[in-house]
């Protein structure tokens, strides 16, 4: 069976020893969209020991353009992404243990999974910074490296966070970026996904074979359509008083108050989301104008999106009309606002 990995064992930085290590490791991938699918496929083909994948979503027709584990049939059957992923991944490599969780990733769902497993590495494949800051806190609290990745349009970025060594996401970004460009507002092409995945999976392999010396220490960012590529040295961003990786961490995203709160507005077929941060309505309006019928006034922005209507207030409240499901509401919120 090691014959199957022969080309990887031949690679001088992996070898027999490295392959054995890969086979003993457990990776957690958070999100099973484009980046999640592609990273999962790489790790499973590479012979990872155990892979846990979390995603709350099911396969939709618009996913097929870039999410490599899914087929038309998965879409017809509306399979949860992690379930469809597990099926394909086991056809690819039946010797890997795949643990799927159909779950919204938040601190209440993630912490128990982390605590009862022995996770060697977390790969970020989420589509929003809320969850990335949460992963960042978890990484530092439980001393697990994580690899950030994101993409949109033909752009992407990636950075590897090693607790105790590198700056963390909180060092790089003082606060949650509001309204980053999302795949659902400005689109995406599949090579952007692959490029980020190439960086993430390479760093993952380095960490799994414990070749820390070779890790990329820069933040990488690119735009494939503009033929642009840049790496940024970030050592100096590490902050002594960082609330996540500093000397006296408070792990702000593991506190109940920092969570984006969703509540059902009873009988109104509406979910209210409270984000706890101001939303720049005007900028958002510019970006969303092609996405759906839009109305703006000084207090709010309202948009018809799919069969729903989202009303976004400047003070950070969002109403999603047309659903009683908190999961659907959150998904729409992340698709529109990021």
């Amino acid at each position: 069976m090691t014959d199957r990995y022969s080309r990887q064992i031949m690679f001088k930085h992996i070898g027999e020893m490295g392959q054995e290590k890969i086979g003993q490791k457990h990776v957690l991938i958070i999100g099973c969209g484009a980046l999640g699918s592609a990273n999962a496929e790489n790790l499973v083909r590479a012979g990872i020991g155990k892979l846990t994948i979390i995603d709350r979503d099911y396969v939709e027709i618009t996913n097929l353009q870039r999410q490599n584990l899914f087929t038309e049939k998965d879409c017809d059957e509306q399979l949860p992404k992690v379930i469809a992923a597990k099926k394909r991944l086991e056809e690819i490599n039946s010797s890997v243990c795949i643990v799927p969780h159909v779950l919204d990733a938040n601190f209440e769902t993630l912490c128990p999974i982390i605590e009862r497993s022995s996770i060697d590495l977390i790969i970020d494949a989420t589509d929003n910074f809320d969850t990335r800051f949460l992963i960042n806190d978890i990484s530092l609290k439980y001393n697990i490296p994580w690899i950030m990745g994101s993409c949109v349009g033909s752009m992407g970025m990636s950075f590897t966070i090693l607790p105790g060594q590198t700056p963390c996401l909180q060092c790089l970004l003082d606060s949650l970026p509001v309204s980053g460009a999302t795949c659902d507002s400005v689109g995406i092409v599949s090579p952007a996904v692959q490029m980020v995945t190439a960086f993430q999976s390479t760093e993952a392999l380095k960490i799994l074979v414990e070749d820390y010396y070779s890790l990329r220490t820069t933040l990488v960012t690119f735009d494939l359509w503009s033929n642009y590529f840049q790496t940024i040295r970030v050592e100096r961003a590490k902050k002594e008083h960082c609330p996540t990786c500093g000397k006296q961490p408070s792990y702000p995203y593991l506190q109940y108050d920092s969570q984006t709160k969703t509540e059902l507005l009873c009988g109104r077929n509406t979910v209210q989301i409270r984000t706890g941060k101001k939303i720049p309505i005007d900028r958002l309006a510019k970006r969303l104008k092609k996405v759906g019928q839009l109305r703006v006034n000084p207090y709010l922005l309202s948009i018809d999106y799919q069969s729903y209507r989202a009303v976004i207030f400047r003070d950070g409240r969002v109403l999603i009309h047309g659903t009683n499901s908190k999961e659907i509401a959150k998904k729409i919120y992340h698709q529109l606002i990021g």
């Binding site: 999100g31 969209g33 484009a34 980046l35 999640g36 970020d124 494949a125 989420t126 589509d127 929003n128 910074f129 990745g149 994101s150 993409c151 949109v152 349009g153 752009m155 992407g156 970025m157 970004l173 970026p177 980053g180 460009a181 999302t182 795949c183 995406i188 980020v196 960012t221 840049q230 940024i232 990021g338």
Partner: peptide, 10 residues
């Protein structure tokens, strides 16, 4: 000088 807004998708 490069100004790099974080991208959020995935």
């Amino acid at each position: 000088v490069a100004f790099i807004p974080p991208v959020s998708g995935g």
